[in-house]
Design a binder for these strands. Structure first.
Lengths: 223, 223
DNA sequence: GGCAAAATGTACGAACTGGTTAGTTTCGTC
DNA sequence: GACGAAACTAACCAGTTCGTACATTTTGCC
């Protein structure tokens, strides 16, 4: 799909391939996040689109192709957002705190992304396999935490011997679960964990938990 | 068609309502855990059953009724298993360690359960709402950790002011994610987190993380 | 203006899917 | 050993769902 160089802004057209594609992808992302791969309906997606079912198949091949694109779309958006955090000037302990807080909030802000990841895990990552675009996006996601950790160890603030990737795992777990399992958890224990108050407490706990895990005892405040 | 001994139990019958029901539920649980509510096929379930599609509707009403039963089934099995852990004789710190280790392993042993919970969360707990059976099962699930925590605080091993339910949340998060998101996580970071080695490390980390979060500084070993 | 390629609209159909209809067999019990 | 209820079977049905065939318009380019 090549775009010839044009002068000025593109004039409004009756035909707008790029816009159509984007519009379809947007609606599809919503529907898949809402209903899952099997649960989403191509006809329903088409109906909500400014375009038609014909166009879905024209641009994305089939339902699964559309799903994979929606998945890529979700990852791309979220990773783009993550890149905005900058902690380079901060002391390691503070940087880590910021990172965890940011991750917590970021997950909370992008619930459709969380849902897509849940759905994809139900499918055992089968469709992720078909997308080389996604792996590339995440290769650098680990860098940030690795840098902070290295800094903290050098400063004798963090205990050595931890694996940044495993640390990332733990942080992800705490922040992800917080969104992914809220429905069942709240229901079962009869307490709403979605209130701003509950969320604030969970965030504090999460930060605290990570910091206590990583920091050396003497770098922590007294109990 | 085998004959059971006449050991007081019902003689073998060609008609076996209880057995049929259980058989259907068993297969249905597998299929729903495998494919989700929308993804599972009633015909496929029926085919794998010793019985027929008609019987599914006879005993469970409709597809959703069958799904709710499968969900209840999953919760019941897992909660029954959990009840087996006994830490009452142990010092609080050791008891908590055992609890976390057990939870970690237990989640790992019951991946179909995890999948059912994931699926139900995709459905926002809508079907959990329809089942009063499940809430009752979990009302006591929090007791165990609450007892350990209270003991630890009394013994000056744990820092006070924590909420057992929130603690349970954190532990669940770490152990749940470990199963639920393995597919995408492993894929994205190109490292298999399902090996016995990786699991052992993650378990250690998880235990460590919880203990460091709960214990008072002076109750912990040096870094 | 003319033309091929890209983009789009309309309508349809084959296969699937949840659910049912209608009828048969089994079984406790009186 | 008759009888009604419970357990069960097989075939079928109607609505849905993904996907496509065919026709048409728009666009870039000479």
């Amino acid at each position: 799909m090549r775009k010839t160089g044009q002068s000025g802004k593109a004039a409004p057209r009756t035909q707008d391939p790029e816009g159509t594609r984007r519009n379809i992808l947007e609606i599809a992302s919503e529907e898949f996040a809402l209903n899952g791969l099997a649960g989403a309906r191509v006809d329903e997606i088409a109906a909500r689109t400014r375009s038609s079912k014909r166009m879905i198949y024209y641009y994305f091949g089939d339902k699964e192709g559309l799903y994979v694109s929606a998945l890529e779309n979700a990852y791309r958006q979220v990773r783009d957002g993550e890149a905005k955090l900058d902690t380079d000037g901060l002391p390691a302990l503070e940087a880590l705190r910021r990172l965890v807080e940011f991750t917590f909030d970021h997950h909370h802000r992008h619930q459709e992304f969380i849902r897509m990841v849940m759905i994809e895990n139900i499918h055992r990552g089968e469709y992720l396999d078909r997308s080389d675009a996604i792996r590339d996006l995440n290769a650098t996601a680990i860098d940030h935490i690795a840098r902070i950790y290295a800094r903290g160890v050098a400063d004798k603030q963090f205990r050595p011997g931890l694996d940044p990737l495993e640390l990332h795992w733990q942080i992800s777990a705490l922040c992800f679960f917080n969104v992914s399992n809220r429905a069942t958890f709240s229901h079962i224990f009869g307490r709403d964990f979605g209130t701003t108050d509950a969320l604030a407490r969970l965030k504090d706990n999460t930060v605290e938990m990570v910091l206590r895990f990583v920091a050396r005892k003497d770098a922590l405040p007294d109990d």
